[in-house]
Simulated assay, not measured.
Amino acid sequence: MKSVAFDYLTPSTLGEAVALLERLENEGKDTKILAGGQSLMPMLAMRVARPEILIDLKDIAELRGLREEKGWIVIGAMTSKREAEDSDLIRTRQPLFHAATQLVAHLTIRNRGSVGGSFAHGDPASEYPAVALVLDMEMKAVGPTGERIIPAADFFVTYMTTSLESNEILTEVRMPIMPAGTGWAIQEFARRRGDLALAGVAVTLRLQNGVCQDTRMAAFGVNPATVRLSAGEAALNGHPPDPATLARAAAAAAAALEEPMTCAHASSEYRRDLIKTLAERCLAQAVERAGRRAA
């Protein structure tokens, strides 16, 4: 199939883009933001999305780049995933985000797809929302009334739906630098390398006096939005990370999941079993890394 006909606009500044978006919304035009297009273009081709106008952010230089700022790593929304993957700053200072980026699709997709585009798309099978939850990331959005910072816990609403307003543009994502002694892991299961995950888990934790503290777990690919695995966190915090305890925490995390999604590729119970297995593996890996980073 081919997309429906649409007008194509390429603003050169953020201010111009925001003004365009506001004007077109006031005129009642169905408008979409193009921020790399690795998700939107297939939707256009299949006519799942039928916008009247596309606003392409590719020429807005201020939306690109990576920097460290007062204990945070800041990534411009139009920075490609490949740039994030190649960044020594991210690899050394926030290795969980780096590992998650390497799991995204294939190299050709990461060359073109933008970091901000993935966050704004809000696909529940994407790695980034889960990482955002366990890292307490923040998203910066700009609209006609100015800018606002949205915590990750408030950003992802439901299936491919975020708390961005229709006249706002995501301009950057912010993540804290990983503290020394923090263990981390991310694992997923997909039918083929590069496919969207049928289920996945991201974890961070610390070891203090031989027990686990500040455990944060999130599951992706199982519910309409990425979800924190708070039952698993509670089952592990304050306990030594022996194999039996890790297994109990993983089981608690999976058991507490609200009814996981069912599709042609995986039943609800299969996804629940995947989360249990992946959570146990992630916890063991995170414990090992926490010990190494604390040494």
Score class of each variant (00 low, 15 high):
68 E>G: 09
200 G>I: 05
265 H>R: 12
54 L>T: 07
192 R>S: 09
241 P>T: 06
146 G>T: 03
283 L>N: 02
15 G>H: 03
29 K>M: 11
87 S>K: 04
77 A>G: 02
11 P>N: 07
6 F>Q: 03
13 T>V: 04
77 A>P: 07
204 T>P: 10
10 T>K: 10
222 V>M: 03
49 A>M: 01
17 A>V: 04
176 P>G: 01
201 V>Y: 04
180 A>K: 08
139 M>Q: 10
132 A>Y: 04
23 R>K: 15
182 T>N: 08
184 W>F: 13
130 A>I: 10
233 E>D: 13
40 L>M: 07
84 A>Q: 07
287 V>S: 11
246 L>E: 08
124 P>F: 02
291 G>C: 11
193 R>F: 14
206 R>H: 12
21 L>Q: 06
205 L>M: 12
46 M>A: 08
196 L>K: 02
32 K>P: 03
234 A>R: 15
215 T>M: 10
127 E>C: 10
204 T>W: 07
18 V>K: 01
169 I>M: 03
51 P>C: 06
198 L>N: 01
237 N>R: 12
256 A>Y: 00
76 G>S: 01
258 E>S: 12
129 P>R: 09
116 G>K: 13
57 L>G: 01
37 G>S: 01
100 A>F: 08
157 V>C: 05
33 I>A: 06
176 P>R: 14
101 T>V: 10
99 A>Q: 15
31 T>Q: 05
254 A>D: 06
86 D>M: 11
7 D>G: 04
269 E>Q: 12
29 K>V: 15
148 R>G: 12
244 A>R: 08
60 I>V: 15
89 L>C: 14
4 V>H: 04
290 A>K: 09
128 Y>T: 13
